[in-house]
């Protein structure tokens, strides 16, 4: 079992709430993703057992939703928004700055497996651009100084 007891309990709780079990696919994927950091065939199978829906239906939904990473990544997933409002305030230069700082390109992971850098579309933080999301957390109104601080804090926490 990959999913912890806590995760299974959360998924079962959702089963109680929803009118139909199939609706629990997305909530279950969310629980799994939060716990594991990605979802894959083994996880689809476990979810399918818990909610009693064929594995293929879980997989079908999972592959549609891009937020759920399909393979392991660094401990911290840095997601920089490169959509219009952020781009107007220097998102491209922000991405370049992080690439240089971490010595990786978009899509890559640092050697210590700590950081993975990706670009994402608008995250609903346009009036506090430029911004990035690291794992679940938003970091808004970014400056070089702030980025330095954030990455340093994460590194020392790891």
């Amino acid at each position: 079992m990959i999913l912890t007891e806590e995760s299974v309990r959360k998924i079962k709780e959702k089963l109680q709430q929803y009118p139909q079990p199939k609706s629990v696919i997305l909530p279950a994927l969310t629980v799994a993703y939060r716990q594991v950091g990605y979802v894959d065939a083994d996880i689809y199978r476990e979810i399918s057992h818990i909610i009693n829906i064929p594995t293929v239906e879980v997989a079908e939904a999972a592959t549609f939703y891009t937020m759920f990473a399909k393979k392991p990544r660094g401990k911290y997933l840095i997601q920089v928004c490169h959509n219009i409002s952020c781009a107007l305030l220097g998102a491209d230069s922000l991405i370049g700055y992080i690439e240089e700082k971490l010595g990786i390109k978009i899509g890559e992971t640092t050697e210590d497996n700590l950081f993975t850098l990706v670009t994402v579309e608008c995250l609903g933080s346009c009036a506090t651009a430029p911004m990035m999301q690291i794992n679940q957390d938003y970091y808004e109104k970014l400056t070089k100084e702030k980025v330095d601080q954030i990455l340093e804090d994460l590194r020392s926490k790891a």
Binding site: Y18, L26, T30, F64, Y65, F68
Partner: peptide, 8 residues
């Protein structure tokens, strides 16, 4: 019910 999506 609070339902969350998957980034689409």
């Amino acid at each position: 019910i609070v339902h969350t999506g998957g980034g689409a």
